[in-house]
Simulated scan of single mutants.
Amino acid sequence: MIVVTSSEIAGTARDASGPGWESRRMIVRDDGMGHSVHETRVKKGAELHLHYKNHFETNYCISGEGEVEDVQTGKVFPIRPGTIYALNKNDPHILRATGSDLLLVCVFTPPLAGNEVHRKDGSYAPVE
């Protein structure tokens, strides 16, 4: 059984951040679960241009307000507590925290190692 708290991850190699976001990687590849689970905060006013070419991602909003834009269609979806969105086609997207910080639970398949940050194209490197 794996039991971990967010406060235990704070300040470790599994506490990643970049411009406008920070993410505590609670479950990672080495845990052997086949997915990774992250507690991610997107700062109010942040606009993240992302394209997970090598991963599928599902996000569940715990708190905050924002929106996600499907780059290919231009369609914008509001994000509020209780909203889930899944990038099931490696969708290029723009994530915005509009009204306040967004707090998300994110699940990645394949799992992240835990210390990744976004590359210039908004993706994470392929799994080794």
Results as ranks from 00 to 15, higher is better:
I79D: 04
A97D: 10
H51F: 04
K43I: 13
V71T: 15
V68C: 05
R41N: 06
E65D: 15
L50W: 07
H55E: 07
S36K: 02
A46C: 02
Y60A: 02
S36R: 01
L87I: 03
G45A: 00
I79H: 00
E57S: 06
V71W: 08
K43D: 14
V37N: 03
E57P: 03
D101T: 10
K43P: 02
T109S: 15
T109Q: 14
K89D: 14
S36M: 01
V42F: 01
K44R: 11
H55T: 00
P78E: 08
N54R: 00
G74Y: 02
E47H: 02
A46D: 04
S100N: 15
I79A: 05
I84W: 05
D101G: 09
A113I: 15
E65F: 07
E69S: 02
F56R: 03
R80N: 12
T40F: 11
Y85M: 11
V76M: 08
V71Y: 10
I79Y: 02
H35S: 01
P78M: 01
T73W: 04
P78L: 01
L104V: 13
G82V: 13
G99A: 09
A97W: 11
H38C: 09
D101V: 10
L50R: 04
T40D: 12
T73H: 09
V68N: 04
A46T: 04
G32A: 05
E69I: 12
V71M: 06
H35Y: 09
H55S: 00
H38W: 08
S63W: 05
G32E: 05
E47P: 02
L87F: 08
H93Q: 15
F56S: 01
D101H: 09
E67Y: 09
L102P: 07
K44E: 13
L50I: 11
V105F: 13
D70G: 06
V68D: 06
C61M: 08
S100L: 12
S100H: 14
R96I: 08
E69G: 01
P81V: 13
E69R: 11
V71A: 11
